[in-house]
């Protein structure tokens, strides 16, 4: 497995390098410059470009950027927050986005698994009704609509929770965004969990286990849950990356100081260095999550052998 991980890491580095190069080239086609200000003269714009090294050929900019990146320097913002090191921007904002994304994931997963498995195990009509209702709404309704409803009924009419994220009460002001973002996750996970558990319950080995006289509890815990989790984990990885990179609309609505809106703002402000740094971090995050996912497969299902020869 160590060899497989090494191979994956090398491929990841090459992928990131290619992503950066493509980004550098694509950004050259964007109209305007980071210094879109009517009040700046062409000389002043030229000076600013020189200050940030934007007057040099793209390829030189690219390798200089890679060199700095090796030293942990992602550059400074040009126009969104002039002269601010991008690492500072990310260090301040990523933890909040990750915290909210992480809790949404946990809440959504736990709720989804419970809902899915319970519906699969107990053939209750009420449970089935709840399952259908919640998964249908969770999948069909976008999270910002939940956020709007929560804001209006719970925050504004009920005055139970803050309408805006407040550093003085981070827990209570995170509840609405976390719940709003977790409902979609819950619905997806619940559907997968129920379908998989249903399939596994009909499988031969479960039938055999029952014939052997194993208790219901043992069958569920040892056979059904473990085998139904595999596809659920695959879905979770994609959802997790989505949640960790932040939701533009949810963050804007609740004024959460996260990274959700940063990339869009950076693109519209032509803040090249922020666009590149964020894309790099997002890509790296995705690659890491996928790698962890592969390792998790091994842990959950010992039959999976990564990169090795079949035994």
């Amino acid at each position: 497995m160590a060899r497989y991980i090494c191979k994956r890491l090398i491929i990841s580095v090459i992928t990131l390098f290619v992503i950066l190069l493509v980004l550098f080239l694509l950004l050259q086609f964007m109209p305007g410059s980071p210094f879109n200000d009517q009040k700046l003269s062409p000389e002043q714009v030229a000076q600013l470009k020189e200050k940030y090294g934007l007057d040099q050929p793209v390829i030189i900019q690219f390798f200089r950027y890679i060199g700095n990146m090796m030293k942990g320097d992602l550059g400074v913002s040009y126009s969104l927050s002039p002269n601010t090191p991008i690492t500072d921007l990310l260090v301040n904002r990523f933890p909040i986005t990750m915290k909210i994304g992480f809790f949404s994931m946990i809440l959504g997963t736990v709720a989804g698994l419970l809902l899915g498995f319970l519906t699969a195990f107990f053939k209750s009509r009420i449970l089935k009704f709840f399952y259908n209702l919640l998964t249908l709404i969770g999948i069909a309704v976008p999270s910002y609509l939940f956020a709007m409803c929560f804001s209006y009924f719970i925050g504004y009419k009920g005055e139970m929770l803050p309408l805006l994220y407040d550093f003085r009460s981070p827990f209570s002001s995170s509840i609405m965004p976390v719940v709003a973002m977790s409902l979609g996750v819950m619905a997806v996970i619940a559907r997968f969990a129920k379908t998989e558990a249903g399939d596994v319950m009909k499988s031969d080995y479960v039938l055999l286990a029952r014939c052997q006289g194993l208790s219901n509890r043992t069958i569920i815990m040892k056979y059904i849950l473990r085998n139904s989790l595999m596809p659920v984990i695959t879905v979770m990885a994609g959802l997790l990356v989505g949640l960790l990179t932040g939701s533009l609309v949810i963050e804007q609505m609740f004024s959460i100081p996260g990274v959700g809106g940063l990339l869009t703002n950076a693109i519209s402000a032509n803040d090249y260095s922020v666009v590149i740094a964020l894309s790099f971090v997002y890509s790296a995050l995705y690659i890491v999550v996928m790698l962890i996912l592969d390792i998790l497969y091994c842990v959950i299902d010992p039959r999976v052998r990564l990169g090795g020869k079949p035994e």
């Binding site: 809902l115 209750s124 709840f130 719970i154 005055e159 929770l161 719940v179």
Partner: peptide, 20 residues
């Protein structure tokens, strides 16, 4: 099942007082 479902949906919203 009903109790579990209700706890799941509203439990997360509890425990929060009025704004200070």
């Amino acid at each position: 099942c009903i109790v579990l479902m209700c706890l799941l949906m509203i439990g997360t919203l509890g425990g929060c007082g009025r704004l200070k």
